[in-house]
Amino acid sequence: MNARPLPDLVIVSGMSGSGKSGVLHALEDLGYYCVDNLPAQLLPEFVRRMRDNDAAPTRIAVGIDARNFGDLSDVPIALSEVGALGANPRLLFLEARDEVLLRRYADTRRRHPLSHLGLALADAISLDRQALRPLRQIADVLIDTSEMNVHQMRRSVLTEFGLVGAGLSLLFQSFAYRHGVPGDADFVFDTRVLPNPHWDARLRPLSGRDDDVRAYLDAQPEVDLYVTQVQAFLDGWLPKLRSETRSYVTTCFGCTGGRHRSVYLAERLARHCRATGWEEVAVHHRELE
């Protein structure tokens, strides 16, 4: 088998809470094979295996951040080895101001990945920034997401890498009403009228992305009617918004906990829009990510 070069390799790094997961999801939507939290020391071997496999994808994105095992100062060496293999690695680094990161963690109630060290959140952010300094210094693209919403961040990244042109970008977002309606919502649909998987003990720990929850909701006649009506609304009005000077449209689905019905609807409507020809479609689950 002849080795073949990898034409496109994106390394996604940056501060925890700056939006790395959203970027990886956006790249995955565009056909990239995405791997998150790959140990940097394994990067050359990973690329070598991709290069030597004719069936392997030709566009790859790898997430590397402070969760990485080993010294991040070794990453430049790993990237040099990757370049020698025929790949074209580009390092994207996302950052945000400390006060913004503090607010994001407070809003989402997520734990910082360095909190297991027993640090206060502010100290964990400071250590994260220090550990990632070697990657920031060699970044090909540096994006500050402090003032960006999910839409703007996605568009900035994809435009920076020449992956999309002008057009309307769609975001389908799930949320919990008890934590408030997203401030950037254009359309909001209340899914609390639908049967709730939460009351099934078997489904409660799952989310709307899991097969069992999808099967449960797929089988509900009310859900099918709801989806049909929302699809008709979006199919009728989204093309009209595209004809105006709009760059983003955010469609939000809310339920009580933001885990089951809203997640299911956001995923299902995103799939519908991709199937009907929309190219820039992202999904964000506020209470899960």
Rank of each mutant, 00 (worst) to 15 (best):
G183E: 09
R129E: 05
R136Q: 15
V213D: 07
R129K: 10
L142C: 07
A120N: 12
V223G: 01
A215E: 14
H151E: 06
F172M: 12
S174M: 08
V157K: 05
D140W: 02
H151Q: 14
Q130E: 14
E222M: 11
R133S: 15
T159P: 02
E160Y: 06
P197D: 04
F175R: 09
A185N: 08
R192S: 12
A166H: 01
F187M: 13
V223H: 09
S156A: 14
Q152D: 14
R136N: 06
A124N: 13
V213W: 04
M153N: 07
Q173N: 12
Q137D: 15
D123C: 09
G165N: 04
R202H: 11
F189G: 03
A219Q: 14
H116L: 13
G208I: 11
L135V: 03
G162I: 11
T191S: 15
L206G: 01
A219P: 04
N196Y: 07
G180H: 02
H179F: 14
R155K: 05
A131W: 00
G167S: 09
Q137H: 12
A124G: 11
M153L: 14
N149V: 08
Y216I: 07
S156R: 13
D218T: 09
D190Y: 11
P221A: 09
R214A: 07
T159F: 01
D144N: 05
L206S: 03
I125V: 08
L127P: 01
V188D: 02
P182I: 04
L217E: 01
N196P: 05
P197K: 09
S146H: 07
R155I: 06
L194A: 02
S115E: 15
R192M: 02
P205D: 11
V213Q: 03
A124M: 02
D190H: 07
A120M: 08
H151R: 11
F172S: 00
D144E: 10
A219W: 07
L132H: 00
L206E: 02
R192W: 12
L171E: 01
L170K: 00
I143K: 12
V141P: 08
R154V: 06
R136A: 12
R209V: 03
L132W: 02
H151W: 02
N196H: 02
F175W: 08
P182E: 13
I143R: 12
R192T: 15
L203V: 00
P195S: 09
S207V: 03
L117R: 15
L163Y: 04
I143M: 07
P221F: 13
L217I: 12
Q130C: 05
L117G: 09
S115K: 14
A219L: 08
R155Y: 07
P197A: 10
D210H: 13
S174Q: 10
F161S: 03
L127R: 15
V193H: 01
R202W: 00
L127A: 14
L194N: 10
R133G: 00
R202T: 14
D123H: 12
D210M: 04
P182L: 03
H116T: 11
Q173Y: 04
S126Y: 03
R204I: 00
G165W: 00
R209D: 13
H151C: 12
L132R: 14
R214H: 08
